Every structure is written in structure tokens, then in C-alpha cells.
Simulated scan of single mutants.
Amino acid sequence: MPDLIVEGLRVEFNGQAAVKDVSFTVNDGEFFTLLGPSGCGKTTTLSSIAGLEKPSGGVIRVGSEVFVDAARHRFLTPEERNLGMVFQSYALWPHMTVEANLAMPLKIRKVARAEQDARIGDALDQVGLLPYRKRYPHELSGGQQQRVALARALVYSPKVLLLDEPLSNLDAKLRDRARAWLKDLQQSVGITTIYVTHDQLEALSLSDRLAVMGEGEMLQVGTPNEIYDHPSSLAVADFIGRCSFFRAQVLENENGTLVVDLLDGKGAIRVQSDQQFARGTSVTVGVRSELLKVTPPRTDVPAISVNAIPAELKKVSYVGARYEFELMAAGQLMFAEGDRKLTDDQVWLTVPAEGVFVFAEEIPKEKLANDPVAEVVS
């Protein structure tokens, strides 16, 4: 199947842009995820591809077949696009059996009865529900209902599968199993898939590539490793994983090594960065919580030699496989992890020289620990 291409997509509601000039390409057979917080435009983008929203600008096409061209007033209805969609609520007809639910889209497309039976059997076999074809939705578990919704979307061999947070109604353990099953199914069927979620773990574990969205815009598109290890902006680093941020000023910049002075804190740290910053430039240094180390205070070596800064341990949480720490350091709320419990109020927070992010951006005011409405960075 040709690639799905979205170019300059814009969607407005009451004169306000919900999606702003969004462009991306989904390759044939790819699992592509739209990731972002509520209200970022990801579901509106998916609905525009499905034909459930009418864009005010842009083009959506699969190969040479144009679904939307706003400038030329071209807009294909959902049934003309031959796309499969699974909604968050599954949207199964409660008064119909499983096989009747799957038969409905085939009847709409006027598929012959004999072929209907064959397709329904094949689709239910793919999702492991062939013995349940005579049951009603209320006789199935949440996970089984989700599989029925997927089978209904696959039964008429759509060009692209669109999934709008289909796992959000499942409990945690079932959601873990469903992720693995869904990825295996997508690969075995070989269908191009666009997935919408706000769950970072789902996006990272399922996707071949993903797009992080914010306020109706594309912030970054890349593989899970690229997005996690090399975020293009402070906003992406803040949304993906748990990241702590230091406000700093550049003191030195030579041979890929930055020495930065921590504002509202004591001392300086050395970090690796390919970016060039002039002396005196205000920057934000970001570091993943799993890379920060918390240790009892030391007096035998200066902090600058070990990239450590003094911190106050505010909270310790035991989460099974590890401990999570909340600390005050350099005038900010920080997060770290460790494999043993700490009881000292005053500790050292060791910052790695590698694996950190340096942005020529200021931390938003609401992220500052001394702000009365400060939010936890997550």
C-alpha cells in the first residue's frame, strides 16, 4: 500500500485552531503513534484522517488517492476512504452478537453473504475469538470487547488502521498483555497503523516511529529511541519520561564540553553537548531521573570534581523495584531513582556528564519550585 501523507493540516473550531499546519508521512506497514497530552490535537488529527472532521486547510492522501484537499474543496466521506477505526469506547452494538457486529460494515459495502462468513471467521481467528462469535458484547471481558472492535475494523481489509486510545479502558495488567498482542497482530497482518495515546509507555513500546504533539503542533517526529534520547526541545524532554531541569549559565564551551554555572544553586557542572553556546548564555540543562544519583554528603573532594551539588531530600517513595526521591537542589524540585533507601536530609545529587540535554530555552514559570503553583515535572 502507498504511504499515507498529511500536508499542512489545519483544523479550526469556532475560529480557534485545534491543529496548526501539521505535516507527516506514515510509511507502508508502519506503526505510527500520535502522542501528547489531552487537548494537543492528536485525536482531531486522527479524526481528520478518518473523515470525521473536516479540515479548514491541508491535504490528506494515500498515494495518489486524495482524501482531503481543502484548497480544492475535495473531501471524501469516511465510507469512501476504506479506513478501519477503533474507538476508545469500542462502540460495539450491544444488541448484536459478535459476528453480527463484524457483519455490519460488510453489509454496508454489499459484500456477498458467503464471503461475509469467510471474512468474519478469518478476522475472529486473527484476534483469537473464533469460539465467541455467537456471544453478545456484555458476555465478554473488556479485553475481549477490545479484540472484537479490532476484528470489526480489520474484517473489510482497510487500507489503514486508526486506533484512538483503544487500551485506555483496560486494567493495568491486561493493558500490558494487550500491548504485546496488538503489536504482534499489526506485524502479522502488515497493515499501516496510526495510533493515538497520551500514554508514553504505550507509544515507546508499540511504535516504529512516533510524533509528539503539543498545542496543535508537531513538536518532534522520530523513533522511540530518538525521541527519548535526543529530544529536540524542552517541551518534548519534559513530556517524555521523567526529567529534571536546572537553570544555568554557560561559563565555558570547548571541544563538546560545557561548564555551566547553576543559577539559584551552588557550584558548576560539566556536561557533554554538541551544541555551541556563547559564554554567558542562559540555558536549561535536563537530565533523566534514572541518571541522577543520590549519595550521602562527602567532604573529601570538591563537588565540581564529581559533578555533584548539595540537595535536600524531601520525600522517599518505595515503588517495588526501586526507590524514587524528590529533592530540592539548585532552587528547583528534582527527581532521582536508586536501589536503596536514604534517610539523610542533606545529600549530594550527582549529575552525569553524558546523556544530559542542554536547551537554549528557559524553564516555564510553572515549573519553578519556588512558584506557588509549581507542578511536578513528569
Rank of each mutant, 00 (worst) to 15 (best):
I363T: 07
V356W: 01
E362A: 13
F13S: 09
D208P: 08
D208R: 02
S205G: 06
K159D: 14
A278L: 04
I108Q: 15
L210G: 00
W181V: 05
G29V: 03
S23G: 09
E80F: 12
D122P: 08
P37W: 03
D3I: 01
L129Q: 01
Q187N: 10
T193I: 09
L342A: 06
G84C: 13
R133V: 09
R147E: 06
P78N: 05
F32N: 09
V319Y: 11
G121W: 01
G8T: 10
L251E: 13
R109E: 09
V127M: 02
V22L: 12
T223E: 01
A360D: 15
L327I: 07
D176F: 05
R279V: 15
E252V: 09
A237K: 07
V68W: 00
D171P: 11
L204M: 15
E366Y: 12
P302C: 03
K173T: 14
F13C: 05
L368I: 09
D28F: 07
H95Y: 12
M85V: 09
V19E: 14
T281F: 07
E312R: 12
R340G: 01
S207A: 15
S205T: 15
L92P: 07
P105F: 11
E53C: 10
I60T: 10
D345M: 01
I309N: 00
P78G: 04
V19F: 11
Q16W: 07
